[in-house]
């Protein structure tokens, strides 16, 4: 990983290559969790400068990891994560991505179920306004023999403006039998019925929208060790693009 990638590289298809050039090469942050151990961390990109992080997580047998991402800076933000799960390991990702203006924000994951009986779940919530582009590329690979795998992806994006773009691509590569993988992926606008319900009770439209977007983004941090702090930081970023 030394030469700057090109658009032909799937994982960089939507990247802001000009911004990335200044940050390249990215140091890989190596996280290893020994068998039976648990770990957790959160990455928050909420600064004013272009930022990119590359994380590799290796989980031993029965190890557990909880990763939370907030990609909500005011410039280019990219977080890529590669996770390799041992037998019976558990990985959870909760990520929120918020962008406005002409920003590009992206989260790229590759979760490899290398051994049997591992569980992975990913919840990614994006709110995109202005001409921003938000991308989630998420590959789940189930290796040969990794029976009993449970892999789940719940990917949702809300567009605040017609000019914003969401690229959401959950992908499954399964080489084993007896595997439970599910992905839900939706790009949309806020539920009109809910907005009317709130308005009928007297809530002005801007407030109703804000309340619903807060709830939407907060889903990324449910159950996190630092749930409150992460949610608060996300809502602050959200209010800045509303």
């Amino acid at each position: 990983m030394s030469a700057l990638p090109t658009r032909k590289d799937e994982a960089f298809r939507y990247a802001d290559l000009a911004a990335l050039a200044a940050l390249w090469p990215l140091p890989v942050q190596d996280i290893r969790v020994a068998a039976g151990e648990t770990g957790a961390s959160a990455v928050v990109l909420d600064g004013a400068n272009d930022a990119a992080q590359d994380i590799a997580i290796t989980l031993g047998d029965g190890a557990e990891y909880d990763l939370r991402l907030l990609n909500a800076g005011s410039a280019y933000g990219r977080i890529s994560v590669k996770v390799t799960l041992g037998k019976g390991a558990k990985f959870h990702l909760g990520a929120a991505q918020i962008a406005g203006g002409e920003q590009t924000a992206e989260i790229v994951t590759e979760v490899v179920h290398a051994e049997p009986d591992a569980v992975s779940s990913q919840v990614v919530r994006s709110v995109l306004g202005g001409k921003a582009a938000g991308t989630y590329l998420g590959r789940v690979v189930v290796a040969r023999g990794a029976v009993g795998t449970d892999g789940e992806q719940s990917i949702r994006a809300m567009l605040l403006d017609r000019t914003a773009t969401a690229n959401a691509r959950p992908e499954l590569e399964i080489y084993a039998d007896d595997v439970k993988c599910a992905h839900g992926c939706a790009v949309g606008e806020l539920d009109q019925q809910s907005l009317f319900y709130l308005a009928q009770r007297g809530l002005p439209p801007a407030e109703a929208k804000k309340l619903m977007l807060h709830a939407f983004i907060a889903e990324a941090f449910v159950g996190a060790g630092e749930e409150e702090a992460l949610t608060e930081a996300a809502l602050k970023a959200l209010d800045a693009v509303l």
């Binding site: 539920d191 319900y197 709130l198 007297g202 809530l203 309340l211 709830a215 939407f216 889903e219």
Partner: peptide, 26 residues
Amino acid sequence: FLGFQYPVEIPGVSFVQFLRESANAQ
């Protein structure tokens, strides 16, 4: 006030939270 035939479910938004805002907006 409209009492709905089919009241809408809104995940992540609590009654107290939105009703206080609603009452005060009114």
